[in-house]
Amino acid sequence: MSREWIKGPLPVLVVLPILSVLTYATTDMPFFIYLASITGVNVILAVSLNIVNGITGQFSIGHAGFMAVGAYAAGYFSRALAGVQLVFLPEVVSDQVIFLVAVVFGGMLAALFGFLVGLPSLRLRGDYLAIVTLGFGEIIRVFLQNTEALGRALGLRGIPQRSSLLAVWMAAFLTILVARRIVSSSHGRSLLAIREDEVAAEAMGVDTTGYKVRAFVVSSFFAGVAGALFAHFVPIINPSSFTFVKSMEIVVMIVAGGLGSTTGAVLTAIILTLLPEQLRTVLTSGAEGTDLAQRVDQLRMPIYGATLVALMLLRPQGLFGTRELWDLWPRSQPKASDP
C-alpha cells in the first residue's frame, strides 16, 4: 500500500531513459529523426482521435483543425520568445523549457477550442459532431489562410526547431498511457458504455454529455500537442498541412487499426506513415538512374490506397478490432467473495 504511489509515474520513469538513450544514439541520423518525429506526431493524433471516435463512439472528422490550433499557437509563441532566455538556466535548457511551455500552451488552446466546439454539438446524438467538426476544421484553415500575422497561405516560418525524438515520443507515450488508463478506469468504462448504448448509459446514471465533452477535450488537447510538436520540427507550417485530407488520414488510421483499439491506432499510425517511405525505397531501388525511377515515385500513393482498400475488404473490423496488446497480460484476479 505504501509503495502504491510509484504505480502512477512508473511507466514514465521506465520509458524516459530509454528514449533519452535512443535520442542520443541517433543524433547523426537526420532522416531517421525526421521520419520518427512525423510518425510520432501521427501516433499522437491517431491515439487521441481514437479516444473520441473509437472509445466514446462519436464521430469527429476535424482533428486536423485542432492540430492546426496547437501548431500555430505553439509556433507563434515559440517564435515570439525565440530570443528570450531564462536567467537561471543555460541556453539549451532554457530553450527546452520554453519549448515545453509552448507545447502545453498549444495543447491547452486546442483543448479550449475542443470544449467550445464539443459542448453544443455533443449534447445531441448522431452525426452533428461530424458536421460541426468538419466545419470547424475548414473555418480554422480559412482563418489561417487569411490572417496576416500568421503568414496567410504562405504559412508561419522561423519557428525555432527545438523538437527532438525524445520530446515527440515522450508525448506519444504519454498519450498512449492516458488513453489506456482512461479506458481501464471506471470513467473510461462510462465512455465505452456511451459507445455501446447511449440511452442505457444515461439511464444508468452516466452524464453522457459531460463525459463526451471531457473525452473530446482530452482528445483535442493531444491533437494540439501533436500540432505543437509538428511546428517545432517542420521548417514551415502552412494551412495546407491541416486540411480535411489530413483529418481523414487520421480517421483512416484508426479505422484501419480497429476503432477503439489504442494498439491498433498506434500500429497503423506507424505503418501508414512509414509505408509511403518504404515504398519509395522499394520502388527506387533497381530503377537507379533511369526514367523509371522518376516515375515510380508517383505510384506510391495509389499503392498506399490499394493497400487500405485491401485491408478493409479483408478485415472490416480493422487490424485489431477492439482488442489491445495489454489484453495479453494475465488478468490480475482481485480477491472476491465466491458465490
Binding site: 465505452l192 458504455a193 448509459a201
Partner: peptide, 23 residues
C-alpha cells in the same frame, strides 16, 4: 430501469456492465 429490448453494453464484459452503473 431496464429496457424492453435488452440494452446491455454488448461488447463489454459482464462485470464492466455492472461497474459502469456503480460509478
Amino acid at each position: 430501469r431496464t429496457f424492453q429490448n435488452i440494452r446491455l453494453f454488448k461488447e463489454l464484459s459482464v462485470i464492466d456492465n455492472v461497474k459502469v452503473a456503480s460509478l
